[in-house]
Amino acid sequence: MDLETIKSTLEANVPDCRLEVIVNPSPSGQHSLLVDAEHAFAVASFLRSSAGFNYCSNVTGIDWPAKELSEKVKVKKIVDGVETEIDEVSKTMIPGCLEVVYHLFSMSEKIGPLPLRMRTQDRAEGVHLPSLTPVWRSAELQEREVFDLFGVVFDGHPDLRRLLMWDEFEDHPMRRDYVNPDDYEYEPTAHDDVLQRANQHRSTVGER
C-alpha cells in the first residue's frame, strides 16, 4: 500500500480531511502524511481500525521557528526616468510552528513506517493538537514528553503532565530558542561557545 493509495482511501472515508504528502528527499524514502489538526483524530482512528496501522511506534515533536527566506528577484524599475533592471531582495517570512510526528507500523501487513504529521498554528498560543492516545495507548508517555519538552498541548490526553522535567519548570527545553539557564560551572578547558558562556557568566555574576 503506497502513500497515495492511503491518502485517497482516507479522503474517501474521512470527509473534509485535508491531507498532504510531504516528500522526503533523502534515500530513506520515508514520505509522510500531513493531516490537519481538526480531522487528525478521525484519520488516526481510521488508520488504526481499517488500514491496519495498529502499532504506533514513535511519537516526537519538531520545532520549526519562524524563519525569513530571502530571494533575489530582478525587478524592472524606473530610476531617473530610465527603466533599469535592479536586483531586489524579496523577503518572505515563513511562520513558525510545532510539528508532531507519529511513526506508524502495521504488524499484520509488516509495512511501515508511515510518518503521520500534525502542525500547530503557531508557537505561542495556538499550540493545541488533538491527543491520539485514545487511538494508540503507546502515545501516552511520548505525548507527555512532547508536551514537556516542546510545549504542545494535547487536548484529550488522559494525564497530561510533565514527564522528564519537574512540574514547576517553566520553559520547554527542546525548543530551538530555549535559553540555557546561567548555571555555568568552572571548566578549565572552555573554548568557543562554552567560553562565551563562561565570560557572560563572569560578567554578570563575577568570578566564581
Partner: peptide
C-alpha cells in the same frame, strides 16, 4: 547528509530501539 529525514530501528535486547 543531504536534507531529509529517516527513521531507523533495530531489535535491541530491550525492544525496538529507533532513531529518528
Amino acid at each position: 547528509p543531504k536534507p531529509g529525514e529517516a527513521y531507523g530501528r533495530i531489535e535491541s535486547p530491550k525492544g525496538e530501539l529507533g532513531f529518528y
